[in-house]
């Protein structure tokens, strides 16, 4: 087996260079850390001192105002109850549909020789009217008036159920249609 030689002595130059580097780094780090520490510590002490007083003052003020508000509990209750009722009522009234004009407007649809015998209406606009026409001509005139009302956008989707001719020569008919808002108001 051949002999191999290994140099185990660390060169003096390399060792002192690393030590110098370490010396420089630790010195700088120590300097920076001490300055940073002092600065942050001073800042935190200043912040805590100034704001503790301010915070205490605010807390006292809050307590005072809270006491004032608590003394007005009755007025608060009155306001809260009223606003709650008003809020519910607002929603309920938004669901209602006016019916004030419906009777008059339905009566207005009637033409000569036509008598409206019964009317059914709901808040979704579904309407059904039963009529009695004295002759086929008056029935025709009535249908024309309905079509005219449709053109005026007071009603739509007119659907006629079976026409019945009575012995007396008059006609009865039930009509289904959709009433627009202006028919109800």
């Amino acid at each position: 087996m051949a002999k191999r030689s290994v140099n185990l002595i660390i060169s003096k130059r390399d060792f002192s260079e690393t030590a110098e580097k370490l010396k420089r780094i630790t010195t700088i780090t120590a300097g920076i850390s001490i300055v940073l520490f002092l600065l942050l510590f001073a800042l935190s002490v200043w912040y805590v001192r100034t704001n503790t007083d301010k915070f205490t003052q605010m807390k006292q003020e809050l307590d005072q105002v809270e006491k004032k508000v608590a003394a007005k509990k009755q007025a608060e209750g009155l306001y809260v109850l009223t606003s709650q009722r008003l809020s519910v009522l607002e929603k309920l009234l938004a669901q209602t549909s006016p019916y004030d004009g419906l009777i008059g407007n339905i009566a207005g649809l009637s033409t000569e020789g036509i008598s409206i015998t019964s009317v059914t209406a709901d808040s979704r606009g579904n309407l059904s009217i039963s009529i009695l026409a004295s002759s086929s001509a008056s029935l025709d005139a009535f249908i024309t008036s309905l079509l005219y009302a449709e053109q005026e956008k007071r009603l739509s989707k007119i659907f006629a159920q079976g026409i019945l001719r009575h012995e007396e020569g008059d006609y009865s008919l039930t009509l289904l249609f959709h009433g627009e808002k202006n028919l109800y108001q």
């Binding site: 009522l89 309920l92 009234l93 669901q95 209602t96 549909s97 019916y99 419906l102 009777i103 008598s115 409206i116 015998t117 019964s118 009317v119 059914t120 209406a121 709901d122 808040s123």
Partner: peptide, 13 residues
């Protein structure tokens, strides 16, 4: 408050 959902009426001459 009474919300009207539907009405029905009959007319006699």
């Amino acid at each position: 408050l009474i919300n009207i959902l539907g009405v029905r009426w009959n007319i006699k001459q």
